[in-house]
Each structure stands twice: as C-alpha cells, then as structure tokens.
Amino acid sequence: MSRTALGAWISHPSSFVAISRFSSTQSLMIFRCAFPSFGALRRILTSLPSLTILRLDDPLWPDPAVDLSPRLSHGASIVRRPVLLVLSVSWSSDPSNRRRAQQFINWLSQTATLSSLVDLRVSERGAQVSCMATFGPSLVRFGRCVRRLDIEVGESRDSELERFLYSLTSLEALHLRFDSFRLQPNTWVQVGRLVYTLPRRTQLLELHISVDYFGRPELSIFDGFDAVDAALQPELFKALQAVKLDIKYIPNPTDREEGQALTEPMMAVIKTKFPELFARNIIEVSLHPPPVPMRLMSSLEPTLAPRFP
C-alpha cells in the first residue's frame, strides 16, 4: 500500500474501528511502511487488544522536528495498550530515523509495555552508530522486566550501553551482535566488560555472540577471544548453561576452499581461545555462510555490509 493510499485509509473515520475488530491478533510485523503521522502508528497499536508480539522494520512518518522536547512523546500519557511481551525494532541510523526511533521508544515506555516486555531485540542499519545512539536513553526504562536482550554492539566503548545493561535486573539471556566492519583489537575485551556490567550475573543462563563477516574470516579476528573465556568465571556466572559463538560469513566466489577445509583451521584456533568454557562443556561454536538467497543478494551489492536475520 502506498503512503498516499495508507494515509487516505487511516484518515477515514471507520479505519480504527475496522482495525479493532482484529481482536485476537497477537503478532504484527510492519515492514518499511510509511504512515501519515506518528499518531497513526500509535492508534493502530493501541487498537489491537491482544497484541503481544511486534516487529518494526524501518517504519516512516513525517520527520519529527529537531527542536522537539527531549521526551519526544507528543504529549503521550500512560495508556493500557499495547501490552507487548516481545519487541523487535530496527531502524537505519540517519538523523531523521534516529528521531523516529527515539520518539517510538519513548512513547512505548509510557504504555503498559513498560512492565510487560520480556524479550527485546534492537538493531540499526547504515552508518556505524550505536543502538543506544539510535534508540536513545528511554531504552533504559525497560530494564526491570526484560529477560532476553538481542542488541548490536558498536565499535568502541559505549557508556550508554553499559548503563542499559546495568538496568537489566531480570536478564537471563544476552545476545551481542557484531559485524566485521566494527571488529577492533579490543572487541573481545569489550564483551567481557559488558557481561561484567550486568547487575545480576549469577542469573544469566545464556550468552550468544554473533559476528557477521563479509568475506573469508581472517584468523586474526579470534585474537583476544581468551578475554571472554577469562571473564566468564564460574563463581560469577553460576547459572550459565550455554555460550554460543556464531560466525556467519560470505565466502569469496574465487576462494576454492569451502566447508571443512575452510572452517577446520578456524575451529582449531577457537578451541585454544576458550579452554575453560570447553572444559565446562557449555560452549557451542558455529561457522557457516548465510542462506543461499542472502549470499546471492550480497554478491550483487559487494559494497554493502551484510545483514542477517
């Protein structure tokens, strides 16, 4: 539906009455949809009484004014809906989309979702801007209830991300995502620092680290992995049951090595970096290319960093 058509439909007096008839709808995905206003998106979400799972990918509405108040809420007050359990949000990180992302997160933090959200995934696309810079300080308000967090990590120390992690008093599973363009010599030291930031480390059950690599992974990316192994001390992470390291890569079409011939040397290096975790038998490592359609798409856009679901 075009933006004009969507705007005309939402502007009709009966549109939200029609939406509210989907009373049993529990899950909603909005993918690159343009709304005539932020209020239109809010009204859709508050019109679905059973909505508990929401995914937003790059929704658009008129650019919020640069001089909006820090709350960016357009006067929203505490409302009963939505009452989300699961939220996945992704925006590109240009300035106007950062303002949209912050406007949405701030509004959502003033709804019943503030005390219901247990599973949160946030990601940004485009410029190398951290998720905290994209979504703003209102993310911290969700810290009390979130049990599972999936978040992309920037290339340098992020004090706002550390502050957010420190607010996660109910966290049981943490998924940290990196791409190869953000890997730095101190990246794995940063991972250790982030998990130490958690206020209740003893209740963490799962740590998942993902790296999206464009091209053949160099063995040098594993330098410093031992910092993660040293950080996850059993006396501090007593409940930790699984550490997952997932490296996705798009092989070079001219590279003759593939499969085990490519991954075995990497796996051998990884095992030397995690002696304690392998000894405790709680680490799982996967090295693999993305699905074929993603590989084909990436081969058509060689200058873009790959993004994986």
Rank of each mutant, 00 (worst) to 15 (best):
T4E: 13
S14P: 01
V17E: 11
A18G: 11
S23D: 10
T25Q: 12
S27P: 01
I30Y: 03
P36W: 07
S37W: 00
F38S: 04
F38R: 13
G39L: 12
S47M: 03
L48Q: 03
I53C: 09
L56V: 01
D57N: 08
L68M: 12
L72C: 09
A76M: 12
S77K: 15
I78W: 13
I78H: 11
V86G: 06
S88L: 09
V89N: 02
V89C: 13
D94H: 07
S96P: 02
A101C: 05
F104S: 00
W107M: 04
T111G: 01
A112C: 05
T113C: 10
V118R: 15
L120T: 01
C131D: 10
V140I: 13
C145S: 14
V153D: 07
F164N: 08
Y166D: 12
Y166A: 13
H175P: 00
L176K: 03
F178V: 02
L183M: 13
N186Y: 10
W188T: 02
G192D: 06
R193K: 12
V195L: 06
Y196Q: 15
S210R: 11
G215Q: 09
R216V: 11
F225G: 00
L232T: 03
P234C: 06
P234E: 09
L245C: 10
Y249M: 04
G259L: 06
L262D: 10
P265N: 08
M266T: 01
E276S: 15
I282T: 02
P293G: 09
M297I: 08
S299R: 11
A305S: 11
P306H: 10
R307D: 11
